[in-house]
Structures are given as structure tokens and as C-alpha cells.
Design a protein around this nucleic acid. Structure first.
Lengths: 198, 198
DNA sequence: AACTTGACATACGCCGTGTATCTGATTTTT
DNA sequence: AAAAATCAGATACACGGCGTATGTCAAGTT
């Protein structure tokens, strides 16, 4: 068998660590996750962790970037076949709400991320969700569909509202019945930005 | 000198710990705060902490309740002389945004609170801000000013939007100029709930 | 084949939490 | 009022986690 290249195995190990870190952070939270256990679960030691990611927070950042990236992909897929751009925005919002029902997303991206890495708008991953929302908001304002508000502010509020709605749904007594209520309230509130009601 | 009563000094010590905990959590964050240092800063030891609050999280809960209570008081004061109830809601929102610019409020109530104590809607303090918002929303829907949405969902979204806006302002490059934009966007978005625009 | 590199392991020191035990002052009891 | 009980808080200890310094051996280089 051909000798394994160095970079290959390193890439594999990074992958293992990100994946295991995601599981650990997602299930126990960042603070309570032991890096000894986490690395052992994939047959490595903390040596690999500190070599690849610098420290525990470094791994969290990598995991956040990963999950964040997946979210944006899913949101764009969900809004792909929306009628117009306004409906696209609403579809993305609804998609974020649905995604944030995933416990991993909630804990890692919505709770521990901001608490341990600082505000999402300054993440190295640039918080892809925010970026995507800004794009759409910019277009909608240019087209005169949305009122002329600050793009950053509007995007942040819309994105934040969607994720906040998800937190509410997830922690409500009956998530199943809360979900439509949340989507409903979100859509309604978003309409505040519209020039003319629909 | 009269002998000090037991309960008095205990109450004083609890007060010292809450106050010192607030400073520590607010400046360094919950995870990075050493309880040895914190207790020593008010001339006590961790013995007092564990006796009074059970554990580190117990103190956080007490601190959160304290700050949360102050927030509601300030919000109600801000909305006291609002014209009608809708304006009261907006005033409360603006007040929340302004308050969350306080670093202590941000870190303790908005970041570490949810991350370490769970969702605000389940806090022992009941999250007074949410409760207050629900009150007003309930009235506005009954009066036909707001559209008939789920009260809990609407309150959560409004409250969340205000606090989220504040997080954005605080972490923006130029908070001073961001604040009015945030308040503006918040008010606009809130109007989505109105039956007829103003 | 000798040498260098570097990815990861091993070993160590430090710090922080939580708990078990102790102590002395305030209450209570008689 | 003296003895007994209580209890707020201090002291001491055990355990575990993080980060770093150092070691090691396979992959790559010359």
C-alpha cells in the first residue's frame, strides 16, 4: 500500500476533531466539554488539538464556521424557488427558524458562539447568515420594496428575529405547535419593513 | 455598641457577593471569573458563596435576577409618560436598546445568562422584561391596535429584537451613530404588528 | 543513508470548582 | 445566666481541566 501522505492524515485528523468537537459542544456545551474526552473519542490526544487549533476556543471557532456554513447553504436552498425576493427573505427566515431547532445549532451557534467568541458580526466566518440576509435586504431596498432603512441594522434585526424565534420555539412547552406561531409572528413583523402591505 | 444580629450581617454578605459577582461576571464573563478572587474582593471566602448560593451558577442566577429587575424598572420609567400604549411599547423597546448598551447588561443578561442558565423564559426571575412586554402586547391586541398574533411569540420577538439591536449597536464600529439606526429599524419592524399604519 | 522537519504524544504545573470538616459567635433552652 | 444547639462562614482537600514544554518517530529532504 502506498505510504500515506502527511497532509492527508493531518486533514483527516482536523476533520475528526471538528466533527467530535461539534458533538461535544453541541451536547454538553462548550464550557462543560472536556478536551481530553473529546480527543480520545477519535483516538487522538490534546496534542493534536493544540497543534491544529491553538486552543479550545480555536476549535470552537472552526466548529462554528462549519455549522454556520451549512446553515447558509440550507437557507439558500430553501429560498431557491421563492416567487420574488421578498418571499425569498421570508423563506430564508423560516428556514433559519427551522434550522435553529437543531440542538447543535442552538447551543453552538446561538448560545456558546456569541458568549465565547464575541459578536457574530465579527466572526472570522463573517457569519454567513447575516451576510446572505444583507444581500437580499440591499436589493429589496434598491427596488423600493422595503423602506429605506440601514441595511446592516435591518439585516441584523431580521436575522436575529428569526434565530430568536427559534430559541423561543425550542424552549417552549410545545415546540410543535409553537413553530407555526413563531413563523407567523416573524413574517408579520418583517412586513413592517414593507413599503406597501401585501 | 449593640451586637449585630445574625440575619443582618448575612443579608449584608449576600449583598456584597451579588454586587461583587456582578462586577466580576460583567467585566470578565462568567466562565473566566474566579470565585476565589471575587469573594476575596469583599473580604470573604468561597465558603460564604457556597453557603449562600449553592454554587457558581446560583450566584449568576441571583445576579441575573438583580439586573433583570433593574431593567424592567428602568423600562417602565421610560414608558411612563408615553402617549398611548403603542407608543409605550416603542418606548420600552427603545429603553431596552439603550440599557443593553451597558456592558454589564450585555454580558450578564444577554450572553452568559442564556448560555449558562438556559432560556430566559424559564428563569426563576421569569425574565421580567418579557413579562412586561407581554402585558402591553396583550392589551394592544385586545384593543385591536395590534393584529391578533400569539402573545408569547410577539412579546418574545419584540423583546428579542430590542436586545438584539442593542448587541448590534454595542459591537458596531461606531455605536454612537448606530444607535438611532437601530431604534429606527426596530420601530419600523414593530409596526408590522399594527393593524393600520401610522 | 544521514539529516531535518513537523504532527502528534507525553508529562508537568497551575488554577478553579465543589465538598467535607472545623470553628467560633449568636441564638435558644432550661 | 450557663449550657447546649445552631449555623454562617473559614479552612483544607480531592479531583479534573487547560495550556505548555518537551519528547518521539515517521515522512520528507538532500
Amino acid at each position: 500500500m502506498a505510504v500515506r501522505r502527511r497532509q492527508e492524515t493531518m486533514e483527516e485528523n482536523r476533520e475528526k476533531l471538528i466533527s467530535a468537537g461539534r458533538k461535544a459542544f453541541g451536547s454538553q456545551g462548550f464550557a462543560a466539554s472536556s478536551m481530553d474526552e473529546m480527543t480520545a473519542s477519535v483516538g487522538l490526544t490534546r496534542g493534536a488539538l493544540y497543534h491544529n487549533f491553538g486552543d479550545k476556543k480555536g476549535l470552537l471557532a472552526a466548529v462554528v464556521a462549519r455549522v454556520d456554513g451549512e446553515m447558509v447553504a440550507r437557507a439558500q436552498a430553501a429560498s431557491a424557488d421563492a416567487g420574488d425576493e421578498w418571499e425569498q427573505l421570508l423563506a430564508e427566515g423560516a428556514a433559519y427558524i427551522a434550522m435553529a431547532l437543531d440542538p447543535e445549532v442552538r447551543r453552538i451557534v446561538l448560545l456558546d458562539g456569541p458568549a465565547f467568541l464575541g459578536d457574530p458580526s465579527h466572526w472570522p466566518s463573517q457569519n454567513a447568515c447575516l451576510e446572505a440576509t444583507k444581500q437580499v435586504v440591499g436589493k429589496l431596498i434598491a427596488d423600493g420594496v422595503m423602506k429605506p432603512v440601514d441595511i446592516d441594522a435591518a439585516a441584523r434585526l431580521l436575522c436575529g428575529a428569526a434565530l430568536n424565534a427559534a430559541l423561543w420555539v425550542a424552549d417552549s412547552d410545545d415546540p410543535k405547535s409553537a413553530l407555526p406561531k413563531a413563523v407567523d409572528a416573524f413574517s408579520l413583523m418583517a412586513e413592517g419593513f414593507l413599503v406597501e402591505k401585501r
